[in-house]
């Protein structure tokens, strides 16, 4: 479905732009998604969306697309060898972390702008405004807390932990940095394919588009999408959370009945 539709949408946008004279207004940027509502049903196993839009570009311009999911807390653990076995010896909490963070760009971020510019524009995992708490552990008894970006958190969190956080989130498929993933057409249209993983966290998503020229932000645009459980899986999830005692009793009754049925069904043979 999405391929055909997206071709139509692209065509429409292209025509629209073609009619408007290029010099009509200051920098304009429009962005949209092939789907603004993604439903996680029982048959969900990841899905593909198209991120697309139009901008007024010139040769050498860059476009960066950022997709971020609802904020959560992350517990980062470090394991070490204790008495011959590997044990978690340290826990650190990262707050205000996006549960999902995909960055698409036309080129590697380092080639698009300087680290300072990227940080100011909040682009890339190293520019996230995370809050870091060292939660005890083997070495420090006392807690340390500080507001920090992943970049300047280096004062309290070692570079190793920041690198580890990004690596772990990427391994789980929840964070990604995809360079050369935004395709530009005639410096007017841009598009990127967003692969939502099978473990995508439900919630409200923010999609940001940033247009770069000569290493500086020229304009930016924001849109959003919603990912939610639907159908039977939503029903079960809500039942389990809103009426948890009934859910537990139901699960027990269900198990007792099916166990009893199984015993009866196979006795005749």
């Amino acid at each position: 479905m999405s391929r055909q539709n997206s071709v139509m949408i692209m065509l429409g946008l292209w025509l629209m732009l073609a009619v408007v004279p290029a010099s009509a207004a200051p920098q304009r940027l429009v962005a949209d998604l092939s789907q603004n509502n993604v439903e996680i049903t029982s048959s969900y196993h990841g899905t593909e969306l198209l991120l697309f839009g139009a901008f007024e570009g010139s040769d050498g311009d860059d476009v960066v697309l950022l997709v971020s999911g609802p904020q959560i807390r992350l517990a980062q653990r470090r394991s070490d060898k204790v008495a011959g076995i590997w044990v978690n010896v340290e826990t650190n909490i990262w707050e205000n972390a996006p549960s999902f963070y995909y960055v698409f760009s036309t080129r590697p971020l380092a080639e698009i702008a300087t680290p300072d510019t990227l940080r100011a524009a909040r682009i890339g995992a190293r520019s996230l405004p995370l809050e870091f708490t060292r939660q005890g552990g083997a070495h420090n008894g006392h807690e340390q807390s500080a507001k920090a970006t992943t970049a300047n958190a280096a004062t309290i969190a070692s570079a190793d932990m920041i690198g580890g956080l990004i690596r772990n989130m990427q391994d789980m498929g929840l964070w990604a940095e995809k360079t050369a993933a935004v395709t530009l057409q005639r410096n007017m249209l841009f598009r990127a394919t967003l692969d939502l993983p099978k473990n995508v966290p439900p919630g409200n998503y923010e999609v940001r588009v940033v247009h770069f020229r000569d290493g500086d932000v020229l304009s930016e645009e924001m849109t959003g999408m919603k990912i939610k459980k639907a159908g039977l899986s939503a029903l079960i999830y809500n039942f389990a959370h809103d009426y948890s005692a009934f859910y537990g009793l139901f699960a027990i009754v269900f198990a007792v009945c099916s166990g009893w049925l199984a015993a009866v069904a196979f006795r005749r043979k």
Binding site: R73, L74, A75, R78, M161, G164, L165, R167, N168
Partner: peptide
Amino acid sequence: DLLSVELL
């Protein structure tokens, strides 16, 4: 990987 992350 000695580091691991859990989503709370």
